[in-house]
Structures are given as structure tokens and as C-alpha cells.
Simulated assay, not measured.
Amino acid sequence: MKQDNQSVRLLTIEAEHEGQRIDNFLRTQLKGVPKSLIYRILRKGEVRVNKKRIKPEYKLLAGDVIRVPPVRVAEREEVLPSARLDSVQGLESAILYEDDALLVLNKPSGMAVHGGSGLSFGVIEGLRALRPQARFLELVHRLDRDTSGILLVAKKRSMLRSLHEQLREKTMDKHYLALVRGQWQPHQKVVKAPLKKNELASGERIVRVDRDGKPSETRFRIVQKFDGATLVECSPVTGRTHQIRVHTLHAGHPIAGDDKYGDRQFDEKMREQGLGRLFLHACRIRFFHPGREETMTLEAPLEPALKKLLTRMAGA
């Protein structure tokens, strides 16, 4: 079922929401509304802050008055279909760490972090079904649908604010493993290439290196070399959409199994070796936990199929 908000709503921001991005705030207020629609009403200026147009990355301030236009809101499903139940139950075994303020997940490849853009179900919806008693569950950051690995989910607003500040100040370290085409050269330790989002005629979004794009930086380290491929550790300094995937391509070494930025001939060879997904995995993260008052380092193991692939390639 669906319900309509027929009139404009004016929301005053409380202190606990200060520092949150407007797009993330709207996602919590407009449950069931596709992400694409939220960005559309932002782009069109239908959402106003203090009677002014704002961008999706605008950070809220206490006392801000938000104009939310009438939108069609899907009521949350009380019962998940059986296929989704399997996914939800699978998330329980993917939890790497949990306390009263934070949940850390080893996200499976192929699962979106949230519903929207034609998907009604994602990790955050699954976790809310898994933890119905949790009053607050919000993504700290995002991973592409086909990327696996560490995903932080805040269970308290204070934790979300602290981790977002660490992301802004670049004090949070994130590391990924990627299998790329060809022999990565040891001297290629950093890729600095500005990135710009583009929308194709089909509506698909793609990111390209563009001098007018946003400054972007990724650091690389060789982990293991194979015949025709290299396993590299990637450390993004900035956090742009598809950053690692586009920076590896820009360096001449696209990631295996990347249907958007990859090399078809290389991908076919990897499929013959048993690869059935994008080989990009968020393997390690380091951040300061304000509740425990200590720096934490968490690691997420590669799934067995990827480990088996690397073993097979090493023996070839």
C-alpha cells in the first residue's frame, strides 16, 4: 500500500541532527521513497532550507527550517517475502562487530546498501528487519552494490556524527583489495585524477576523469602478482563515487569483473577462472570509537570463492 503526503511539510532541525547531510536526512524522513526521487526534488529546488535552494551535500544546522514537498511514500512492509528473509538471516552471520552504538558488517557482493533506483530492499532495510527494536540505524558510508566488505552502520546519532567527522577530516583509513588487469608497476603508488559524474541518455550514471571534476586521490600497494593480473591494496584518500574503479581504469588496470569500467576480454578470462563478480573488497578499516575512546581496526575476510580464485591463479 502507499500513502500520499498531500501538503508541504515544514520541519525544524533539532540539535541532534546538526551536521547531517540533507539527502541523508530526507531518506530518514521519507521512508520508502526511492533515492532517485529524493535527488530529483533536491535538484529541482522543491526542497528548501530557510527558503533557499540547497545541494544534496548541504550540512544541516540546528534551527534550519526544511520545506519538504508532497511526495508519494511507500509504507514499510510488515512481512518480508521469503527470498528477502533468506537475505536478512544471512546478514546476521555477516556481522563483524556490534555494540550499543555501532554495527559493522561484511557486506555481500550483489546486495545494495539501501533500496531505491528500482530496488525495494537493501542492507539497511535488512538490518532494520533484523533489529526491529533498534530506534536508530543509519549508514555511515556506502559501498557499490557489487563491492563486498566492511560497512559501518551507526546505531546512535552521536556515533554517526563522530564517524562522519572522521570521514570529513580524513582520519578514517579504509583499505580495499582489487584484482586488476596486467602488471601494476611498483612506482605507481598514487593516482590523483579529478572525477566528475555524468548521466547518460539512458539515465545511467557514470564517473569519468575530468579536469573540471572533484579532486580525488587513491593510494596503491602491490599485494601479489599473477600471470596477466595483479592483486592490489587500494586506499582512497577521498571518497568519490566509483573512485577506485575509475582510478584503476585511468592507470590502465581496470578491475576484474567490472561491467561498467572493465575490460571485456580480461573479464572473460577471469570468468573462465571462476570469477562471477566484481573483484573489489573493502578488507580493512581503522577509526576512532568515541564510546570506547580507542582506535579500532577491523578486517573482513575475502569470501571463499575469491580466495579459491587467487589460489588457482597462483598455481597456474
Rank of each mutant, 00 (worst) to 15 (best):
V180I: 11
L231T: 10
L127S: 01
Y97W: 14
Y97S: 09
E293V: 01
L103F: 02
N106D: 03
S93V: 03
P70F: 05
P290M: 00
K269E: 15
D267K: 01
H281W: 08
V8S: 04
A154H: 10
L167H: 02
S202D: 15
V209G: 13
L105N: 02
R205N: 05
L160V: 08
I206W: 02
K174I: 03
E16F: 04
D258G: 12
R205W: 07
D64K: 13
A305G: 05
R9W: 00
L137Y: 05
R277Q: 11
K51D: 14
K107F: 01
K170Y: 00
Y176W: 02
K192W: 00
V232C: 12
V33L: 08
A112G: 01
A129R: 02
G239L: 12
Q89H: 09
R72I: 08
L37K: 14
E75S: 13
M1F: 05
R264K: 14
R142K: 13
K156Y: 02
E16K: 15
P132G: 08
R72W: 03
Q243Y: 12
V47G: 04
E293T: 04
K55H: 10
S117A: 15
L30P: 08
I38Y: 02
K269N: 13
R157K: 14
Q20R: 11
H141R: 08
L310R: 02
S162K: 10
E217D: 02
L137M: 10
D227L: 13
R67M: 13
P301K: 04
I222H: 05
T230V: 08
L60E: 03
D267F: 07
V223T: 08
E299G: 12
E57L: 14
I124V: 11
D86T: 11
A129Q: 02
S87W: 07
L60V: 13
P34R: 01
N5K: 11
P70D: 11
L177T: 02
V79K: 15
S7M: 04
R135Q: 13
Q166H: 12
E78C: 06
Q166S: 09
D263V: 04
Q183S: 15
A316F: 06
K107Q: 01
F136L: 10
A300F: 07
T147Q: 01
A129F: 12
Q188S: 06
K59A: 15
Q183H: 12
N5S: 11
M159W: 04
H250A: 15
Q133G: 10
Y261G: 10
T147V: 07
K189H: 09
P301T: 04
K307P: 01
P56G: 06
R27P: 00
L60K: 09
A251P: 04
A94N: 07
V180Y: 09
E293Q: 15
R284P: 00
K192F: 09
V207G: 08
G203P: 08
R219Y: 11
Y261I: 08
Y97L: 04
P70I: 09
K269W: 12
S235K: 14
